[in-house]
Measured scan of single mutants.
Amino acid sequence: EVHFESHGEEQAMRVVKMLKKRNLTVEVKVENNKWIITAK
């Protein structure tokens, strides 16, 4: 499981795309203006 924190939507979306290319399940949450990305 991979956790990634991002402060910007643009950066977060880039990471999500990259993770999805690896056929991982990606969950995105926004907490306290931080984008929290979890990949399994």
Rank of each mutant, 00 (worst) to 15 (best):
residue 29 K to I: 09
residue 7 H to V: 10
residue 31 E to R: 07
residue 11 Q to W: 13
residue 35 W to C: 02
residue 16 V to Q: 02
residue 1 E to N: 10
residue 37 I to W: 01
residue 7 H to F: 14
residue 31 E to P: 00
residue 20 K to D: 02
residue 22 R to E: 02
residue 22 R to Y: 14
residue 19 L to D: 00
residue 31 E to D: 08
residue 38 T to W: 05
residue 39 A to M: 08
residue 6 S to L: 15
residue 20 K to M: 12
residue 26 V to P: 02
residue 18 M to C: 15
residue 17 K to I: 15
residue 4 F to D: 04
residue 30 V to A: 03
residue 23 N to H: 13
residue 16 V to I: 14
residue 31 E to L: 11
residue 13 M to R: 10
residue 37 I to R: 00
residue 28 V to S: 01
residue 28 V to L: 07
residue 9 E to M: 12
residue 15 V to T: 05
residue 1 E to G: 10
residue 16 V to L: 08
residue 1 E to Y: 13
residue 38 T to A: 03
residue 26 V to E: 00
residue 40 K to A: 08
residue 11 Q to G: 06
residue 15 V to W: 12
residue 8 G to V: 14
residue 20 K to T: 08
residue 36 I to K: 02
residue 17 K to S: 11
residue 27 E to F: 12
residue 15 V to A: 04
residue 5 E to W: 10
residue 38 T to I: 13
residue 11 Q to E: 14
residue 9 E to R: 13
residue 38 T to L: 06
residue 25 T to V: 12
residue 39 A to S: 04
residue 18 M to T: 04
residue 3 H to E: 05
residue 10 E to A: 13
residue 39 A to V: 15
residue 4 F to W: 11
residue 35 W to L: 05
residue 24 L to I: 06
residue 33 N to L: 05
residue 9 E to K: 13
residue 34 K to S: 05
residue 23 N to K: 09
residue 12 A to D: 01
residue 27 E to K: 06
residue 12 A to H: 03
residue 37 I to H: 00
residue 40 K to N: 07
residue 26 V to R: 00
residue 5 E to N: 05
residue 8 G to C: 15
residue 25 T to E: 11
residue 26 V to T: 02
residue 28 V to Y: 06
residue 30 V to F: 15
residue 34 K to R: 11
residue 27 E to N: 08
residue 38 T to E: 03
residue 5 E to R: 07
residue 32 N to Q: 07
residue 35 W to F: 06
residue 10 E to L: 12
residue 9 E to L: 14
residue 6 S to H: 06
residue 16 V to M: 06
residue 22 R to I: 09
residue 6 S to Y: 15
residue 35 W to R: 00
residue 24 L to T: 02
residue 6 S to N: 04
residue 6 S to Q: 07
residue 19 L to R: 01
residue 35 W to Y: 08
residue 20 K to P: 00
residue 33 N to A: 04
residue 40 K to I: 12
residue 33 N to M: 07
residue 3 H to I: 13
residue 9 E to W: 15
residue 36 I to A: 02
residue 40 K to F: 13
residue 24 L to G: 02
residue 20 K to W: 09
residue 21 K to V: 06
residue 11 Q to C: 15
residue 34 K to M: 11
residue 29 K to A: 05
residue 24 L to P: 02
residue 27 E to I: 12
residue 25 T to H: 13
residue 36 I to D: 02
residue 15 V to I: 15
residue 17 K to G: 08
residue 10 E to Y: 11
residue 38 T to Q: 03
residue 37 I to K: 00
residue 16 V to A: 06
residue 6 S to W: 08
residue 30 V to W: 13
residue 32 N to W: 05
residue 12 A to Y: 05
residue 23 N to E: 04
residue 14 R to C: 15
residue 12 A to E: 01
residue 32 N to L: 04
residue 19 L to N: 01
residue 18 M to Y: 12
residue 7 H to P: 09
residue 16 V to S: 03
residue 22 R to F: 14
residue 38 T to Y: 06
residue 29 K to E: 03
residue 1 E to Q: 10
residue 3 H to Q: 10
residue 2 V to N: 05
residue 13 M to F: 05
residue 8 G to R: 13
residue 36 I to E: 01
residue 29 K to N: 05
residue 9 E to C: 15
residue 31 E to T: 05
residue 1 E to P: 11
residue 23 N to A: 06
residue 28 V to D: 00
residue 14 R to T: 04
residue 27 E to V: 12
residue 31 E to W: 08
